[in-house]
Write a protein that binds this DNA or RNA. Structure first.
Lengths: 196, 196, 196, 196
DNA sequence: GATGAATGAGTTTTCATTCAT
DNA sequence: TATGAATGAAAACTCATTCAT
C-alpha cells in the first residue's frame, strides 16, 4: 500500500526537524564554522545528500534554525496583549526570560552566537534587528505607561540587561549567580522601586 | 654589513604590529572565519609567508590580538587606582567605558565576537574569564563600600549592563541611542539615586 | 535509489586500493617526500579531496601502504609451519626471497626506503622491528635445530644478508649479479656446507 | 690590523666545516627533509644568509656532506695498502668496519640514509656507486688471491653483509648483538674456515 | 526520496631562497 | 662578510556542494 500524501508530508517534516535539531545542537556546541554538514548529517542520522534535499546550503540551514529561534519570541506577544498591568507585565517578562534561559541554554547560546556572527547571514541580522526593534517598542510603551522619565532609554536599558545577562551566564554557567541576579532585577523593576 | 640588533627588533615590532592591526580590522569586519591569512597579509602589505614568520598559525595571531585587547583592560585599571570615593569611581568607570566604546568600536566588536566564539581558543576563554572576574570583584568592592544590600549580584548586574549595551550598540550603531542610555545609566548609579 | 551497502563497500575498496597502488608506485619512484598528494591523486585518476576521504593524511597513507607491505611476510609463516626439515626450509626461504625480490622490485624499494626513513612514522618503525624480531626468532630456531654454535648471531647474520642484498641490488639493478649471489647463498646454506 | 688572506681563508674553512657538521648531525637525526636550512644555521650558530654564502642550495650542502663521507673511504683505503696477506687484509677490513660503525654511528646513519634516498641527488648516487664498485673490486681481488671459486659473487656477498649489518644495527642499536655478529663474521672469514 | 562517493576551489602552512642593509 | 626580514611557489588539508545510482 503506497503511503498517502499526508504521510509523505509528515515524514518530510519529521526529517527536516531532525536535521534542524541536530544542527542546532552542534552549532551551539561547536559554533557554525566548527560544524560541518557531514557532522550534522551524521548526528541527524541521514546522508549528506538528503540534508541538501531539505536545505539548499549550510547557510540556509542556519537561517532556518534562526527563524525557529525567532519564533520563540512570538509567545511574548501574547503576554503583551493579555496582560495590561505594566508592573505585572514586567514581572512576567523577567521571570519568563530567566526561565527560558535556564531551560533552553542551547537555544540562547546559538541565538547570541548567531546574533554576533553577523558575517554569516544578512538575513539573520535583519531578523535579529526586527526582534529587537519590536520588543524595544513594546517595552517603551510599558515604561511610558508607568510614567518613567525616559521610556526609550529605559527600554534599551532593559534590553541590554537581558542580552548582557544571557551572554555572561552562558559564558560561565557554573559560576554565574543567576538566581540572585534575577531576584535583584525583579526588585529593581518592582512597583515599589519604580515608584520611588 | 648587517643591521644592528636594535634595527632588526624595530623592524620586527613594526611589521608585527602592522599584521596585528590588519588582522584586527578584518576580523572585526568579517569575523575570524571570514578572514583568511591571505586577506590579512594583503591588507598589511606583506606576503603570506611573512605572516607565518611572526605568528605560528592563524589561531596564534588571533590570540596575540586578544592579548593586546586584554592588555587594554590592565591599563584601564590603573586609571582608577587613586580614586577612592566609590560614587566618583562608578561615574568614572561608566564614562570611561562609554568613551572607549565610542572611540574604539573595532576593538569592542572584535572583543565581544571573540568572547562569544568560544570555539576559537581556550586560551582566550580563560583570559576573558579572568578579565570578567577582575572587574566584577572591583565593582563588588565599590558596591560594598556604598553599602548596597547585595553587592555581588549588583556587580554582575552592572557587568551585564556594560556587555549588553556594547553588543546592542555594535549590532546597530546608527540607531542606538547611546548618549541617552549613558545618561540614564549615570543617573541610576549617581549618589542621589543609590542613596534613595 | 541509492546503491546498496555492498556496492558502496566495493567502490570504496576499489578506489582505496587504486590510491594505494598509485602511491606505492610513486613513493617507490620518487620517494615519500618527492611525491605530493596531488601527484598521487592524479596518478590514481581521482581528485585530491577524494584521497583525503580515504586517508586522513599523507602520513596515514604511507602507513597503510606499509601495512600492506607488511602483510607480505605472512606467507613466510606458512613456510615455517609446513616445512619441518630445517635445510629445506632454509632453501625455500632463500629462493622465495630472491624470487619475490626479482618480481616485486617496487615493493622492496619502498619497503627498504620506508624502513630507513625512520622520521616518517614511528608506527612503521615499530612494525618494521616487529617483523625483524619475529623472523630472527624463527631463523634462530632453525639454526638451533641444525646445531650451529651461535644460532642467534647466525640469524642476525642471515637477516643482514637479505637486507644487504636487497638494498645493493635495488641501488643498481642492472649491474648486480643477483643470480650468482643467490647461488652462492644457497650453497653456503646447503646441508653439505653447513655440516662441514 | 687587517687580517691576512690566510686568516680569512681559515675562518672561511672553519665556518664551512661548522655548517657541514651541524647539517650532518641534524640530517642524521631527523633526515634530509625533516631538517630545514634554518635549523642547520641555528645549530651552526650562523645566519641563514651566511649558509647560502657557502652553499648554493640545500642540495649542494647535502652533496658536500656526502663528499666528505665519501672521502672517508679513500682514507680508509690507504690503511690497507701495505697489507698483502689476503687473510690479514680481510680481518683488518672487517674489524675496521665494525670499529668505525661503532664509533661513527651518525656518519653511517647518514650515509645509508643518503644512499637510500636516491631522489635527493643523482650526484650522490654516482658517488655511492663508485664507492661500492671500488670496494667490491678490492674484495674480489682478495678472494681471487685466496682462491675462492666465485670471487665476484663472494665480494658482492661480503659487501651486502656489511651493508645489511650496518642498517640493521642502526635501526635498533640497543638490541643488536653487534659484538657476536662481528665475531661470527671474523670466524667465517678466518683462514681456517676459508680453507675448509 | 536517499545515499555517500567524488569534486574542486579555497585555506592554512612550510621553507628554500633572495635581498636590503 | 653577515644578518634575518621578506618572498613566493608549492604542499597539505578542508569541506560545501554535486551527482550517479
Amino acid at each position: 500500500m503506497p503511503r498517502t500524501k499526508e504521510q509523505f508530508k509528515e515524514i518530510r517534516e519529521r526529517t527536516k526537524q531532525n536535521i534542524i535539531d541536530a544542527a542546532l545542537k552542534l552549532f551551539a556546541q561547536r559554533g557554525y564554522y566548527g560544524t560541518s554538514i557531514a557532522d550534522i548529517a551524521k548526528e541527524a542520522g541521514v546522508s549528506k545528500g538528503l540534508a541538501y534535499n531539505y536545505f539548499k546550503s549550510k547557510n540556509e540551514l542556519a537561517e532556518a534554525i534562526f527563524s525557529q529561534l525567532y519564533m520563540f519570541f512570538d509567545q511574548y506577544d501574547k503576554l503583551f496583549v493579555e496582560v495590561t498591568d505594566p508592573y505585572e507585565l514586567l514581572e512576567l517578562m523577567i521571570k519568563g526570560t530567566f526561565k527560558h534561559l535556564r531551560e533552553n541554554e542551547e537555544f540562547w547560546k546559538l541565538y547570541t552566537s548567531f546574533a554576533l556572527q553577523w558575517e554569516v547571514s544578512d538575513k539573520m541580522k535583519i531578523l535579529f534587528e526586527e526582534i529587537e526593534r519590536k520588543y524595544l517598542k513594546k517595552m517603551e510603551n510599558v515604561f511610558k505607561k508607568i510614567g518613567l522619565k525616559n521610556p526609550k532609554a529605559e527600554s534599551y536599558f532593559l534590553g541590554a540587561m537581558f542580552d548582557g545577562i544571557s551572554i555572561d551566564y552562558l559564558l560561565d554557567k557554573d559560576k554565574y549567580p543567576l538566581k540572585s541576579v534575577e531576584r535583584l532585577l525583579l526588585k529593581k523593576y518592582s512597583k515599589e522601586e519604580l515608584l520611588k
